[in-house]
């Protein structure tokens, strides 16, 4: 075999070393970024909420506050805005109670396999609406679902719907009855309210405009 044209570009050891280096550097960068991200996406505390410190993922006790989703001029997209205190299922939840409730809600969301019809933070299946900002959906706020379920507050309407979804159909495609208990339903609503307070960099976009646009009637039936 002639050695005269043995350029480094055709050397297997060269490419092996390069592959190892590139992979190593990419992995180290990813781990470094992961450390930074972990800090930013760990859940805030009850104190943060009381002191008005904004966290990307607030504490579970955010369920005691009014949540809105508004356009932020500086960031160029919508962000969740945590406002005044409000009751949740008619009471204020202590930090521990709220954390317990969120735990049950998250567990239930997995046990009932929500993600294989819905999307959460946009990930999941595409058979049913995205749940990222479900708590803020006009459907629960404009009186439609409170009317159908005959409940006074939207959290009660949501819990009732989750327990008996196929009793309150809105479309031919319905949510099936998954045997959700009252306790689990309350927890799921807390899970949804907490998720709506997560800073998702403006996803879903124009959500806060949704109600207004639907009133315009271009596509409404």
């Amino acid at each position: 075999m002639s050695k005269k044209s043995a350029s480094v570009w055709t050397s297997i050891p060269f490419w092996r070393r390069s592959a190892a280096w590139v992979t190593g550097v990419a992995t180290v960068l990813l781990i470094w970024l992961t450390f930074d991200t972990m800090g930013q996406i760990s859940m805030g505390s009850d104190e943060d909420l009381k002191n008005g410190i904004t966290k990307r993922i607030p504490a579970a006790s955010v369920i005691n506050y009014h949540i809105d989703y508004q356009f932020d001029d500086k960031r160029g997209h919508e962000v969740p805005v945590i406002g005044e205190k409000e009751t949740f299922f008619g009471k204020e939840w202590s930090a521990e109670e709220a954390a317990k409730l969120l735990h049950l809600g998250k567990l239930t969301s997995q046990a009932k396999n929500c993600m294989n019809c819905h999307t959460l933070l946009g990930n999941g299946a595409y058979y049913a609406p995205d749940l990222t900002k479900a708590w803020l959906d006009p459907k629960w706020n404009d009186g439609t679902m409170t009317g159908i379920t005959g409940k006074a507050s939207k959290e009660e309407a949501m819990a009732e719907f989750l327990m008996h979804p196929s009793q309150y159909p809105t479309h031919a495609r319905m949510m099936p009855n998954l045997g959700i208990t009252k306790e689990e339903a309350v927890a799921l609503v807390a899970f949804l309210k907490h998720m709506s307070a997560i800073d998702t960099n403006g996803f879903p976009r124009n959500f806060s405009q949704s109600a207004k646009r639907l009133e315009g009637g271009t596509h409404a039936h």
């Binding site: 075999m1 002639s2 044209s5 043995a6 350029s7 570009w9 055709t10």
Partner: peptide
């Protein structure tokens, strides 16, 4: 193309 040609010369003359 350079890589293909050089590697052919080197490994599969």
């Amino acid at each position: 193309f350079y890589l293909i040609e050089e590697s052919e010369n080197r490994y599969d003359p």
